[in-house]
Design a protein around this nucleic acid. Structure first.
Length: 456
RNA sequence: GUGGUUGUAGCUCAGUUGGUUAGAGCGCCUGAUUGUGGUUCAGGAGGUCGUCGGUUCGAGACCGAUCUUCCACCCCA
């Protein structure tokens, strides 16, 4: 095993079965996207660093894969910068391109760049890999696929309602029941921080709050204190920790808590609108849950925030996320374009379907019939038969070598090819083929037309 | 990026306080069976023990570095 080749940490090879299963998920998502009126676009795997940097927060910047400039990239760099060993300053000098980190920011760039060619509201979907220089874990890769659907140019809350239905539609088709679509609203979070007098610490406050179900109330309070949020403010937060019950109950509680915050009440009303609309539309595979501790993508989300978690009992991070961003294109100079979108994490959905054994057995398509090779004359005859079968839409192949029968049959068996065609002197003379059913062991000598109906 | 963890045959894993020639099951190859796979039987191949360096008379085992795996943090799909 000397010097086995390898692939970088957090990347994977996919065998045929895995590709088939991935395609099954992708096809399902794509069909649903199209059913909902989204059209595909694609963007380059790498962007100008400027496009990506600063859009995901400091943590995000760290996780962006930077691409080294071509040529003698160090020669133009000021030696004082080199001596300073300031990585971030040096990076901007020696790297002007970076691998895309998600599909949302490139989409925003796309909208601004092609604003004269698109009709608003613009609905697009995009299924492409993204890269993050993260430390890998289970369900966490450095190269993975996102499947995004977004709408820009409409502030309507019906979009949020539609996206929830889209989530439900995809998971229903994948037979993945019991997923939870968690929803929150950035305005509610803003309102809370306003009410407790911690507007300036919104991010710290929400990041701590986000951990509530993981580390518990006391630890969250500890972290808030450590981040400089006053004890008085945390005391005011108590009604939030005590929030419980149904979506409607929590709405009522929030309304009381946020009665002095205009923006907070706005968020509550949005949540209420979405919930009542969904209640009238009946979800099939998913349930919608209000989770005021949900805080993601705060660097650009402004309204609804979504996160999808796998069914209970499956240990996996979120399998989807999304939200509304009122001014994402603003960063690129196009103001007042509101967008909202969701993302499916293909690689994690794969792991969940695998764990729950939800892949249909039919996803791996294989050859239907393999022809045994007895020699050149027989092979010639077999290929004529194979041609006719292929024209009839049946995938058929000839074993390429005149190997021992045991070996040829074994090959069919290993590849789970359901039928084997045997052509020898007597078959050629009668213009027929002996076909063996590998599962039952039965075999019969039949005409080519009969093969078509037998194998199909 | 921080702390921990893992690596032995194609796969899953044994391998005693450091001591001859590193094992098992499954898989693979050959034969029993030159027009018949899956079962059975007989035989066989395959490992510089992740990599590099160190300690030692002697290292799969101990130490260091590095890569990889998984976990916690961070963050996230």
């Amino acid at each position: 095993m000397a010097q086995k080749p390898s692939i970088p940490k957090g990347t994977r090879d996919f065998n045929s079965e895995q590709v088939a299963k991935r395609n099954y998920i992708i096809t399902t998502i794509r069909e649903e996207f199209q059913l909902f009126g989204f059209n595909p676009i694609e963007t380059p795997s790498f962007e100008n660093s400027q496009t990506l940097m600063g859009k995901y927060g400091d943590e995000g910047d760290r996780l962006i894969f930077k691409i080294l400039n071509s040529g003698d990239y160090l020669s133009k760099v000021d030696s004082s910068i080199l001596n300073d060993k300031n990585s971030s300053e040096l990076t901007s000098k020696i790297s002007e391109k970076a691998l895309r980190y998600d599909l949302t920011v490139p989409f925003a760039r796309y909208v601004v760049q092609h604003q004269n060619d698109i009709d608003l509201p613009f609905k697009r979907y995009q299924i492409q890999p993204v890269w993050r220089a993260d430390r890998p874990q289970k369900g966490r890769f450095r190269e993975f696929f996102q499947c995004d659907a977004d709408v820009v140019g409409s502030k309507s809350l019906w979009q949020e309602v539609e996206f929830i239905q889209l989530y439900d539609g995809v998971f229903n088709k994948l037979k993945l029941r019991g997923v939870t679509i968690k929803i929150n609203n950035r305005k509610v979070l803003s309102g809370i921080s306003e009410v407790i007098g911690a507007e300036d610490q919104l991010i710290d406050f929400t990041v701590a709050l986000d951990k509530l179900d993981k580390i518990g109330e006391d630890k969250v309070k500890e972290e808030m204190l450590a981040k400089g949020i006053s004890e008085h403010a945390i005391e005011k937060l108590q009604p939030l920790f005590d929030l419980s019950g149904s979506f409607e109950d929590q709405i009522t509680g929030l309304r009381g808590l946020l009665k002095s915050s205009q923006i907070g009440l706005e968020g509550v009303e949005e949540l209420e609108f979405i919930n009542s609309a969904i209640a009238n539309l009946n979800l099939q595979a998913a349930k919608l849950e209000l989770d005021v501790t949900l805080a993601r993508g705060l660097n650009y989300y402004t309204g609804a925030i979504f996160e999808v978690s796998a069914p209970d009992g499956v240990k996996m991070g979120s399998i989807g996320g999304g939200g509304r961003y009122d001014d994402l294109t603003g960063i690129f100079g196009l103001k007042d374009i509101s967008g909202v979108g969701i993302s499916f994490g293909l690689d994690r959905i794969y792991l969940v379907l695998e764990e729950l054994e939800l892949f249909p057995s039919s996803v791996v398509a294989s050859t239907k019939i393999l022809f045994i090779n007895f020699g050149n004359q027989e092979a010639q005859f077999s290929l004529q038969v194979i041609n006719r079968l292929r024209k009839a839409g049946i995938s058929a192949e000839l074993y390429p070598d005149t190997a021992k029968l045991k070996k040829q049959f074994n090959y069919a068996d290993k590849r789970q090819i359901p039928f084997v065609g045997i052509v020898g002197d007597s078959e050629m003379a009668s213009q027929k083929v002996t076909v063996k059913n590998m599962r039952t062991g039965n075999q019969a000598t039949i005409s080519i037309d009969e093969i078509v109906s037998l194998v199909q």
